[in-house]
């Protein structure tokens, strides 16, 4: 009885944070901000739902699969977010207008100029 109540509370908290993540996906202005809100909140929310299922059902086959699912989403979700963020920055998708600094862009431009300078010097020699 007590574990059903605790599991239900965990499931409700998880669904609430899922809702916040999806709301961030709808409301925020550009890809990077959307990725931040969605990755954090939806990962935490789904982990909460799976933990609630594990607590309600105990260590049966469904519970152990839910535990595997928690490990799996904690490992894969940030990696996918990182890959998408780097790809969208390299394919020159603009950041939103409120952005105040972009160190990655500056360093890439410096790197490009440096490579050009050395190649020019080598050809001259």
């Amino acid at each position: 009885m007590i574990n059903e109540i605790v599991g239900m509370v965990l499931i409700c908290v998880g669904i609430t944070f899922d809702f916040f993540g999806v709301l961030g996906l709808i409301r925020l202005p550009d890809v990077y901000n959307r990725l931040q809100a969605a990755t954090k909140c939806v990962t935490f929310g789904s982990a909460g739902i799976l933990l609630g299922v594990l607590i309600i059902h105990g260590f049966s086959d469904l519970g152990i699969k839910a535990l595997l699912g928690i490990f799996f989403i904690f490992l894969t979700s940030p990696v996918a977010a990182h890959a998408i963020a780097r790809a969208s920055h390299r394919s020159k998708i603009k950041l939103c207008d409120e952005t105040i600094i972009d160190r990655y862009q500056e360093d890439n431009e410096l790197l490009d100029k440096g490579v050009d300078m050395t190649s020019v010097e080598e050809t001259n020699n």
């Binding site: 550009d30 990077y32 901000n33 409120e98 990655y104």
Partner: peptide, 9 residues
């Protein structure tokens, strides 16, 4: 939406 995004190192 109180955001102030930026990319730092």
């Amino acid at each position: 939406l109180p955001i102030k995004p930026g990319i730092v190192k």
